[in-house]
Structures are given as C-alpha cells and as structure tokens.
Design a protein around this nucleic acid. Structure first.
Lengths: 217, 217
DNA sequence: GCAATGACTGGATACAATTCCAGGCTGTAT
DNA sequence: ATACAGCCTGGAATTGTATCCAGTCATTGC
C-alpha cells in the first residue's frame, strides 16, 4: 500500500509535518508554494492531491488548512512504555459449575490497572438485579473483585451457593454465615457451614458504573 | 498574567483544544461560534482576544486558523492514538468562582481513557455528601462528567448555583429548572431561570467507587 | 450614578485560501 | 509517435475567514 512518494512529494509532505509541529496548524497551498519555490499555488494543490491519493495525508475540501495526517504512529514514541496490560477482565455471567474466571465468561476488558483499587482487583463482575441497591450497586454495575477467602464481617463479598454466584454483605457468627442483600425486598440468606457448602469467590473492592456505553440512569 | 478564565472563555479554550486534537488544526471563528451557539463570529473573536490577552493562546493576525497553544511544548497531538498516559483528572473540591478544571483542584488522575464512558468523560468529580444515594452515588464516589450544556430531563448533572457546585437530577419545565436530590432528606432546588443564574457544568456519565484505596463501605 | 468589563447580535468589508481552467515541458512506457 | 503521469506557470472565480464597526444587555467595582 505504501506507494513510494516521489522526491518532490516527499518534500511537500516533510514541509507539512514541519509546519504542523512548528506552528500547530497545517500550511496553505500558497505557503507550500513559497517554501518550495513554486510560483503557483496550483503546484502545491496537485502535490497535495497526489499525497491524498497515496494515503499519507487527508484533504478536507473547502476548508482552509484542511490537511490531516492520519494516525501515522511513525516517530515520536511515548516515553513511558507501561506494559499496558490489557486491563481487568469483565465477567458477564457465570455458567453453573465453572470457575468464575473461565475465558467464556469474559465480555471484554476495562483498561484500569488492578492496583487502582486496594486490595487490588482481579476482575470486574457485572452485577444483575437490584439486591444491593442500598449499597449503591445497581443493575449493570461492574463490581471490582479481589480474589480472597479472608473476609471480615460487614464486607461485601462475591459468594457461590449451589453453583449460583451472588453479591451480598457478609456476616459470620459461629458456624452460621448470614448473607444480606442491601434492599428491603430481599430476605437474608443464612448458611449453616456444618451442613451447607459456601464458597467465597472474593471481596468487593470497588464499583464502576456507566462504562462502555451502559450509561447512567 | 494567569488571571483565571471566565466560564465562557474556558468553553472556548476547551473547544480549541478539542478541535486541535481531533482534526489536527485549530477552528475558525465561525466554527467556534457554531459549536458554542453564537450567532456572530465576532463573539468568538472577542473571546479569542481575551484568551490571547490572558496568555493561554496566541493569535497570528491575518492567518486563517491562526491560533497557537504556546504552553504546550508538545507537537503533533496524538489524534487517535492511545490517549492519556495521565488519564482523567480527578477534581476534589472547587473553589468559588474558579473554573472547575483549574489545575489547583486536580487531586490526581485515574488511568482510564475518556472514551471508556459515553458520552466521553472529561473529568472525574469527587462527590461529597449523600444527597444522591438513591441514585447509587455515595460520599467519596467519583462521578465521571462529560462537559456539555445539552441536558435532557431526568439526567444527572453537575450544576453551579451561586458558585457552589452540586450534583443533582435535572428537570426543566418552561423557565423553571428543578434540581432534585435522590435522597428523601434533601429538598429539591427550584431555579427560576429568569431571575436566577444556573450554570450547567456537565452531564454525569459514570460512577467509580473504591479507587485509590478509598475502599468499599 | 458612572465607568469598565464580559458577553453577545448583526452587518459589512477586505483579504486569505481553495479550487478550477488552460496551458507547457519533461520523462518513461506502449 | 503517441499516450500518460509528474511537475510546473499564470490567471481567475468563488468561497472561507479574519476583522472592524455599531449597537444591546447585564454585572461588577467605584
């Protein structure tokens, strides 16, 4: 695709780049002509058309200084080359029995570093339903989750009961665990650890709402 | 020299920056007027002169699109490249009378791209108080804000009344605007646009909780 | 009350800039 | 030889733009 530029076209292109970096706006035909010694702005115009045809610039018709350099990441590299991990995986829904971080569940990624939250987040879980609305977690929100089993009373946890994943507030008294919704419409769930199995998937460490176009209600 | 910009001047300045990073060249007077709703390019011209006087831009006389941003030593704005090594600025508190994005207010940055939200976020505002708790916005949460004056009824806005910045739900009926808290403990604020001044700073487009160690309650 | 400033409308003018047209002069490929 | 593309001159129509002038309205500081 990189049809080679002629020497003259390269001169014109170089002048455009130089002008933009020096002044912050592109040159006019007349300025190009003056700089390269043309006596007619039409010479510049024709070179611009050629550069547009070859894809190295883009002309905006009828617009003064309407020259754009399409995202050519050629030269200047941003100094900080953060490994830019793909970010936190967003878990949409969890199939029964499968581990929560199985790739089939991953919707997309959120470009936030894990340690933006503390304790650091391992994934984001898309919350369904309004059972935690009084804790400010609404339908569609993303809950940042830190994978751990070490939970203190009163914290918000991601738990799995009978292969179903839920978000609740955790309270342990002896061998009984109470998982409370933060919504008067939902009754607390009491789990007797001696007879039932309760798996803690992690600790809620943050909430994100409105990302990726889900909007704000 | 660094006298603070008025709100309108800030709008014009922001539009210039936005245009330059989006198109690679500065806007014309007419384009500024169209974008901000002026019916005369002269309104834009006067704002540009004010910005030039205050030193935040430099005008090149007789030159179309002759606007430069001298403070920024950087060159070609990365039009479509990876935005923000710095991310979205987090605004902690806003001093009376000053533009909301003044650097003095910036706590830190959140490493999220602006277009993670849609409409894209321009900054994050740390919300104080529980007046919006029924909308899931709690004390200490970060509200992602898109700078705009175009608000539809029922949306959550950042408004400025008498130099105080608040987050409320917006409802307009004729010349009256009702700003409602989402908390029964707070009475709605009714503003008569014919007698009172109401400035809309932006539209709430997202919420982040728990970032930077603020934890989850 | 008065002056100064900010924020505009509306109209006008002259210059800046794009874009078209009609050529001419090279090469290189058919 | 003929065709064609690159490269340029010169001129000119048309639109894009900057910039001035004359006002209005509201707010702020004196």
């Amino acid at each position: 695709m990189a049809r080679p530029l002629t020497a003259r076209q390269q001169n014109v292109y170089d002048f455009i780049v130089k002008t933009m970096s020096e002044f912050g706006y592109p040159p006019t035909r007349a300025e190009i002509a003056r700089a390269l010694g043309f006596r007619s702005p039409n010479a510049a115009e024709e070179h611009l058309r050629a550069l547009d045809r070859k894809g190295v610039i883009r002309m905006i018709p009828g617009t003064s200084r309407g020259i754009r350099l399409p995202a050519n990441g050629n030269e200047i590299e941003p100094a900080e080359s953060q490994p830019q991990s793909s970010g936190l995986p967003i878990i949409g829904s969890v199939a029964a029995g499968s581990p929560i971080l199985a790739t089939e569940h991953i919707d997309r990624y959120c470009p936030l570093p894990a340690d933006y939250f503390s304790p650091s987040a391992d994934y984001l879980l898309r919350v369904r339903g309004l059972s935690m609305k009084d804790a400010g977690i609404f339908d569609g929100d993303l809950l940042a989750v830190h994978r751990t089993q070490q939970i203190r009373n009163g914290q918000i946890v991601v738990a799995r009961i009978d292969d179903e994943v839920t978000v609740k507030r955790f309270q342990r008294e002896g061998s009984h665990v109470t998982l409370s919704a933060e919504n008067a419409d939902f009754a607390p769930i009491v789990v007797d650890l001696e007879h039932q199995h309760l798996e803690i998937e992690g600790l809620g460490v943050g909430v994100i709402r409105g990302g990726n176009g889900s909007g704000l209600h």
